[in-house]
Design a protein around this nucleic acid. Structure first.
Lengths: 216, 216
DNA sequence: CCAGTAATTATTCAAGCGTATAATTATTTT
DNA sequence: AAAATAATTATACGCTTGAATAATTACTGG
């Protein structure tokens, strides 16, 4: 009649625990999809018991939203802080932005799984929809600013309307290629998507994105 | 102690019933996401009892796969059989293909919900993954054939490699814009996405897709 | 080093899940 | 019109789900 000993545990700072639970959520969804993201599976991945989730998040939905926010921030940051995106000529920064968006670790089946799972939820959940809307705009606005700077730099003026269309189109081709590369990794050779993406944004904007500025 | 009367029903041809169950599955997922697609919810939508699903499909997973296949076929067909895509010059057919891909009913939140939900499942399910791969290729191959014909028609020869890249890029921008239009419908004016898509494919391929061939 | 606190585990609950099987009834066959 | 058939409903089973609550234990401030 001996009951198993109560499990040992450590008390972690709240922010650390929350981050761990968010990380566990992202791992589960990226590996097994949204349907697998149950409180028990997530808790197991985080090596805690399920009750703890409710101690830090008011509901599972709340945790999912936090994980969504975290993932989209991480993904945008992975692009905007990548090499060649933070310095150099505007043209080089734009090229770096496109390259980073279409190379590992941004192109990655797990991240596509996260993105598709969250999007599917966002389409019928107002809270998640807001996150989607906000992060979409944030990414596109960054891209539009880079395009605007590169065009100005090349003395190719563009009206606000045309700038908007270029940003939407460039964002579209980046998104589409990113998605295809993550969903069908074996389909594309190393660097192929990045090259196609760079060529495409160049063709759309009329900019030459290949030669480094210093080579001119 | 009177038990409620047993519910009346009609016997339908097997193919009709299967189609109804598939249609109900698509309705549920498009309205409420993959997580809402339970056998009971689907059966209720199809106005039958849940046991019937197992009479026609060996498992819920089997029904989901059938619904996926059905939806992707329907979506591709909606594009490839649209007005201006089946006849006219190659350039007009290509333009019609792009326009149809980026206009209602193809651009539609419900269809994005279906697409994202199925993709999320496909990323960790071998059977669904095959459907994804096959339907992706089918769509892209159709697009590549149209681009090839339009380039030939305009005396702009392209190597197979360049043709592949143009198809990937064009497919990417169409997918990306389609997705954004379906996920954020209020974001774009009527016809805006179709215009941007047409401009983009024109810029990518070097073709003028706006003037009708007869106007030359 | 002890008392207080709250982070964490453990347990419980009602509802929902996919599936299996038995009972019924609409339709077809003879 | 009766009998056979199979489409459909009804019921049940074991498991999982998100959430609520109770019991413990690691840590902190005195």
């Amino acid at each position: 009649m001996s009951s198993p000993p109560r499990r040992k545990f450590r008390r972690e700072p709240a922010s650390q625990r929350k981050d761990d639970l968010i990380a566990a959520t992202l791992q589960v969804i990226s590996e097994s999809g949204v349907r697998a993201a149950t409180v028990r599976t997530i808790a197991e991945r985080a090596e805690v018991t399920q009750g703890l989730i409710r101690h830090y998040f008011s509901s599972k939905e709340d945790l999912i939203a936090a994980a969504y926010e975290h993932h989209m921030t991480q993904m945008t940051d992975a692009v905007t802080t990548a090499e060649h995106v933070t310095e150099g000529t505007a043209r080089d920064r734009l090229a770096g932005f496109v390259m980073a968006s279409l190379s590992p670790p941004v192109v990655n089946p797990g991240w596509v799984a996260l993105w598709s799972g969250f999007l599917n939820e966002a389409l019928h959940d107002a809270d998640l929809n807001k996150i989607h809307q906000r992060t979409y705009h944030h990414f596109r606005d960054q891209l539009e600013a880079l395009i605007a700077a590169a065009l100005r730099e090349a003395d190719l003026p563009a009206t606000p309307e045309r700038l908007r269309q270029l940003a939407i189109a460039s964002n579209g081709v980046i998104d589409g290629l990113w998605l295809e590369g993550g969903a069908l990794p074996q389909e594309f050779a190393t660097g192929e998507l990045a090259k196609i993406g760079l060529d495409s944004v160049a063709a759309l904007t009329g900019l030459d994105l290949h030669r480094k500025a210093t080579d001119i």
